[in-house]
Structures are given as structure tokens and as C-alpha cells.
Design a binder for these strands. Structure first.
Lengths: 214, 214
DNA sequence: ACTTATATGTAAGAAGTGCTAACTTCAGTC
DNA sequence: GACTGAAGTTAGCACTTCTTACATATAAGT
């Protein structure tokens, strides 16, 4: 999708911005919007401004996106891809089934939120109004899937097991909340400094080792 | 503030919308904006539209609020008051120091998010850009204070104790994340149905009873 | 009844937006 | 070498927005 590595042997130089044809708008538009969202909030962007930043006319974007919302969806889609990749990479860096793998996934999540708070918020602000985007929903489920897999391995159960789903959801809520609080309050709310890794390990242990109940 | 119960014996009928003087704009504007935010997202409102809904001209709001942002801040401020009250009430309904009290606070939080997802999001989307609003920050800390108090009572420690702060923050992240996931994904992400009370009790127990570490 | 303060209305300006229509440039194909 | 179609451009419509200046209507106090 994003890499349309054409089968021709012509090396697709990363910056083919030769003259008239921009070569690779769309991607650059998405990047521009990402920036704008990052600095002006989820709705603080305009396709006009994005076009300006990409160095094209204000009508150009409509050759790549049907709508203003579609641009936003593009940004979110791309962001979710990156998030999932980061989570997968983090998990892969630790032994399968280890608590560390779980914590690492959480850390990747938090890091993403911290690195791109605006986009992070956007991803979750977007669910309303854009219901008809199965694409995004699928990607969201894939992200959750990463957590589920790690939790299953850790508990030595199948991913389908309700217990696994429940624990994974707990982990996710927790990390999600931590991420949001962090980017919102910017550590201003509690005096206690927090080391993310310790924190995530503690939580993972508490949740995955907690006695089942009810 | 909101109730300018004038010392005259004139009964301030709740709907004094007699002719010219609206009687109680400001409050009604805030309500209108709340509605708009609820249905069109954090930035999906305009003072013009809010004025329209309140039945006044588009210039009227500026007699009560200096700015567009100030209106938003008003909404958030009011919402935070309500949130804190709900949390306090929930805590008061259970024995001091009980796990139930902690879980009840969490439930109040989740209920608030569910009842007013738009406003809930707004409260936390607003922190950027409105740094110079000590008012809001204070109210945020008050909310956290409720959790801290309950956690301290539960652990039989002083609220200042770092351990308490840490546990309280854990609880908060968790509940915060659960709230957000709930209003964003609308239970679509995990097949496992979740009973909030059981869930919150489990978590409260896991966090407040977890062996300290590190 | 007269003044004063408060609460609203009217009108308008300057800016910005999303999006469309019609024209142009460029790259590749028969 | 002409044709096609994608990717951009320029121009502009129709609209909404925030905000201000000035006028006006009501309520309250003396």
C-alpha cells in the first residue's frame, strides 16, 4: 500500500519532487496533517494549510483524498500501522511468554503516545462519526491482538480463552490510561516520579498473576 | 457563582426567560456548548451555534465570556465540579477505608465518562493550549485527591506517602483507560463482556493488595 | 420619575474554509 | 508522434466563523 515498489528497475528516489509532478504527495500530505494535528489538536488542521505545507495548491489534495475526513482517516490508518509495528517489535525483543514481553508492549504503547500525543489522541477521538471505516476497526483489533497474544503466552492459555481476553483488556486499559494521563497532565498531577519500566512490570505482574475471582 | 441568589425575596424562578433579559444565559450557554461538544466533538462547536441554541444573537455570548476558549474552559470547569462531586458521593456511600469505596469512586468515574463521553474527552483534550488556567488544574488535582484519600484510608497510610500516591495513580490510570476504551471502542474490541463493578473490585484489590516491589 | 448598570440586539468586517469546474503539464503507451 | 489519463494549477462560489462598535431594552435604586 504505502510502498508501491514498482517492479521497474527505476530506483524510486525518495525525493522525486521534480517540477510539476510532486511525485509523492499523499504521503507528504499525511505527514503535514500529522504535524498539524500534533500542534493544533485533532480538528486544528485544514486541508488548505496541509496543502500549503506540502507546497501545493489548495485543490491538489482532492486528487488523493475524496474528503477532508478521508485525510484524517489516512493519518490514523498510518499511525495505527506504526503503533502495531512498534508493539510487535517490542514483544519480539523478549522471550515469548515472559512478563518482560508484556511490559515491553506496554512501553512501546506509552512511548508512542508520548512521541506523538496529538496523533495518539486523534486515533481515539476518531471513532465517533467515522463508523463506516472497517479498515480502521480492523487495525485496532490487530493492535489489541498483539497484547492478547503476549498475555496468552504468558498465562499458557489459548488466545480465545475468556480469561486471556479479560487480562489483556485489563492490561490495555491500564496502559492506555497511563498514556493519556501522561500526555494530558504531563506528570503534574502526582508528585511521585514514575519509572515506566518498573511501573509496567509491576502492573503486568499484578494483572497476570492476580488470582482469578468472581 | 452559578447561583446568584439575590438577597431580595423575589423568588428566582428557574426559568425567568422573560422577554429581553434572558435571566440566566451563561449557564444556558454552557449547557448548549456541552450539548454541542457531546454530539460534534471537542472542536465541533461554535459560539454562534451555541448562541443560536440559547435563543440569543451571536454576539450575546461575548458579554459573558471574553473568548471562545473561555467558553470551553467554562464547560470543562463545570464538568470537573460535577465529576468531583460524583466521586465524593460514591466514596461516601461506602465505609471509609473499604475496597468498595475505592471501586465506587472508579465506577462514578466510568459512569461519568459513559454519560458524557464528549465532555469527558474535552476535559482531557483541553490541557494543551490552555496552560494558563490554574483554576482547571486545581480542580483536576482535587479529583485526584479523592482517589488518594480513599487509597490512603484503604492502605492505612497517610495521603502524602509515596506508596499511596503511586497506588492511587495506578488506580486512576486504570480507570481512566477503561473509561476511554469504553467510550471509544464501545465494547467492540473484546468479546468478553465486562461487568464494571466486578471489574473495578478486582482491580482495586489487585492494586491495593499487590506486594510492593522495586 | 430619573438615573445607572446590566443584558441583549443589529450590523458588519475580515478571514478562512471546503470543495468544484475547467484548464495545463507531464509520463507513459499504442 | 498523437492520445490518454493522472496529478497539479488557478479561480471562484457559497458559507461559516469570531469578534467588535454601537444602539437599545430592561431592571433596580433613590
Amino acid at each position: 500500500m504505502s510502498n508501491d515498489t514498482s517492479p521497474t528497475d527505476a530506483p524510486p528516489t525518495v525525493t522525486p519532487k521534480s517540477g510539476y509532478h510532486h511525485g509523492d504527495l499523499r504521503a507528504q500530505l499525511i505527514a503535514a496533517v500529522r504535524d498539524l494535528v500534533e500542534t493544533h489538536g485533532p480538528d486544528g488542521f485544514s486541508v488548505a494549510e496541509a496543502a500549503r505545507r506540502a507546497g501545493v495548491s489548495s485543490a491538489a489534495p482532492y486528487k488523493h483524498f475524496k474528503d477532508r475526513p478521508e485525510i484524517l482517516r489516512g493519518v490514523v490508518s498510518e499511525a495505527m500501522d506504526r503503533l502495531r509495528l512498534a508493539m510487535e517489535a517490542a514483544a519480539a525483543a523478549h522471550p515469548t511468554g515472559s512478563l518482560e514481553a508484556v511490559a515491553a508492549i506496554g512501553l512501546a504503547y506509552v512511548d508512542f503516545a508520548r512521541a506523538e500525543p496529538g496523533v495518539f489522541r486523534l486515533v481515539f477521538s476518531l471513532t465517533e462519526g467515522h463508523e463506516h471505516a472497517p479498515d480502521l476497526q480492523t487495525k485496532g483489533e490487530s493492535c489489541f491482538g498483539v497484547v492478547v497474544q503476549a498475555a496468552a503466552a504468558c498465562l499458557d492459555l489459548l488466545p480465545d480463552d475468556p480469561q486471556v481476553q479479560r487480562r489483556a483488556y485489563m492490561l490495555w486499559s491500564f496502559v492506555h490510561g497511563h498514556s493519556f494521563l501522561h500526555i494530558d497532565m504531563k506528570t503534574k498531577v502526582t508528585t511521585a516520579k514514575i519509572d515506566d519500566w518498573d511501573y509496567l512490570m509491576t502492573i503486568s505482574r499484578a494483572i497476570l498473576a492476580a488470582e482469578a475471582r468472581g
